[in-house]
Design a binder for these strands. Structure first.
Lengths: 233, 233
DNA sequence: CGAGGAATTGAACTAGCTCAATACTTGTGG
DNA sequence: CCACAAGTATTGAGCTAGTTCAATTCCTCG
């Protein structure tokens, strides 16, 4: 078992309930990655799940012409690798965006451990089930909506005490790639949100001046007329 | 246990391995829905998983202004409800697109049943894990790519012996909504694909004339230049 | 058989993209 | 510790894929 340290990350980790199992310390150890260091590559054989103790990890694929296609960003307390369970190979590559420490959890041991513990098995199912509806912004109509939703999601997931300020861990290029927008569009939208006094932007530092406005953009703006046949439901 | 009938659907059902458990017949029964009949509504309490024996089910949400937002289509042999496991409520509504028969599987019983059977528990995990990377086309750049990928995915998932012909179970409007394209765009792309002798279209009936061309559009066309920093991976 | 939904096609419009130029930031080696 | 190179960000101008609006035809099903 990992003893709670001065680093509080374990407390809010998705896997904290697994850590409290007494005999679990044998199947886990830490690894630290430097900025831009590869955690695993797409098609690598899947042996471990990774819990992020500290840092940020970007998951991506490379298409047939060598273009990067970012699939997700993951933060402290989140787990990587669920999508590799079914065929024992990682579908994505994963790279650290800053100095990042992970908890390496051998899946075989892990699965054996929780097999005899229905409550934990259920917890795992819940965590994976949750991922099925987790944030994709590609269904939002406008660039502004996507970016607003993205910022709000970041704020929520960074698990920081300060919910009105954040430091972007990724580049504009990465954001654009992830949201399927040109880098220039991301930059322009940021400028616009700043001009409209909704955000205060200083390079990677973002302060949310009007939280409600941001939510309005993310939510209400998604209400452009779409084919609606069952509005009565 | 459901005895194999003249209807072959159980054989290729994702849950067939669960059906072979001897005492399982007590926890399952069939329901048939007419066209446009609701299977369940978003926010309904989650009690059952649904295996589609026959037919097609559309899952969708209604946004704050009453617009429909289609999340997925499911076909014979596929399971609905995984995304409701974590909070015991369906995040989407589900509606039959044609006469549809489902196998209603009480989740509580089901979970109890497989708890003592590690192999089945693992199978369930694999099925859900698989869903994490299952087809969204919104990451594709052009309308043509999305539609081509969509058609190819349909062909694969309809589990028909004939892989060059299909009958669309949904309207152009539904396709457009799902792919985030205007209905008119869907129509225009279909026309173009027909003009280019890649598809033969007769209303809902589609014949694939040049399978390789369609795959080229879906795959290769996704290779528009994107921000690529790690092309070497 | 008639009506309302579904599909097609055209014309004009626009959000976001591409191309291009410039400025700023960061990390590295002398 | 500074300078320089490479990466990162911003902004403008013009372009284009896809949308919106509109008109017409074609189905389907009660």
């Amino acid at each position: 078992m990992v003893k709670p340290s001065s680093d509080l990350s374990c407390i809010s980790c998705d896997f904290s309930s697994f850590c409290s199992i007494e005999d679990h310390d044998t199947v886990k150890h830490f690894r630290t990655f430097k900025r831009n260091e590869i955690v695993y590559r797409a098609n690598d054989k899947f042996f471990n799940l990774y819990a992020i103790k500290k840092g940020v990890i970007k998951s991506f694929q490379i298409d047939t012409e060598g273009n990067e296609l970012i699939r997700k960003f993951n933060f402290r307390g989140e787990i990587l690798g669920y999508e590799a369970i079914h065929n024992r190979h990682f579908p994505f590559s994963a790279i650290a965006l800053c100095e990042t420490t992970v908890c390496e959890i051998p899946y075989e041991n892990f699965f054996n451990m929780i097999q005899t513990r229905p409550a934990l098995m259920e917890h795992l199912l819940h965590l994976i089930s949750e991922q099925l509806t987790a944030g994709s912004y590609l269904d939002m109509n406008t660039a502004e909506q996507r970016l607003a939703s993205f910022i709000l999601d970041l704020i929520a997931r960074l698990r920081s005490t300060n919910t009105s300020e954040l430091v972007l861990p990724m580049t504009r290029q990465d954001i654009g790639n992830y949201l399927r927008l040109a880098t220039e569009t991301v930059s322009r939208i940021f400028s616009r949100l700043q001009k409209n006094k909704i955000l205060k932007i200083d390079h990677k530092n973002i302060r949310i001046l009007k939280h409600h406005k941001l939510m309005e953009i993310a939510d209400v703006a998604s209400n452009k007329t779409r084919n609606n046949t069952h509005a009565d439901l």
